[in-house]
Amino acid sequence: MKVGVLALQGAFARHAQVLVALGAAPVEVRCPVDLADVDAMVLPGGESTTMSMLLDSSGLRQPVADRLAKGMPTFGTCAGMILLATRLADGRYDQRSFGAIDLDVRRNGYGRQIDSFEKDLVVAGLDETFHGVFIRAPVVDRVGDDVEVLATVDEAPVLCLQGTVMVSSFHPEMSGDTRIHARFLDLAFDH
């Protein structure tokens, strides 16, 4: 399966490594033609303001929105979660999100870098805990009725699923554990 990894800025190479380890074929996406034959997509961590600017300048925003509207399986981590959410608090006035999953998120909701943390998470559907790496992570303030919450920290959702869109406020690509990516690929295969 060809999985596009948005490669405008951020930790895209790490995601590509995990996808290769799971037997998928990652494709770096920097312009609209790169999207043409991908079956699924990953929006990585990084700076959401930077990616948002580059989504416009690259001409990718509309094609990505179109593919999301057609149900392309998509996984967003951290900044990727911000880009996929419905509403954004504490972002920039001009920042726009795709509204592909019914969540309100708050940027840097856990604080600054000195508050970034690691924590073992209980994840619905996984037998053993998953080591979550949270880096200047966003906080989910509101969860829509159709969203399934798969993991929480202090009662706030950190891994969510709605239809073919999965998001995490932590970085599964950083923990050397492929189970969450594997779950996303299962979702994409079933689609």
Partner: peptide
């Protein structure tokens, strides 16, 4: 943050922010 199940200031978290800055200016 006194939650003992959360580890801050680890190498993974510190290097992790550098990972997030890749490809940027």
């Amino acid at each position: 943050m006194n939650d003992v199940t959360k580890a801050t200031g680890t190498q993974l978290v510190k290097r992790g922010l550098a990972e997030m800055l890749k490809g940027g200016v």
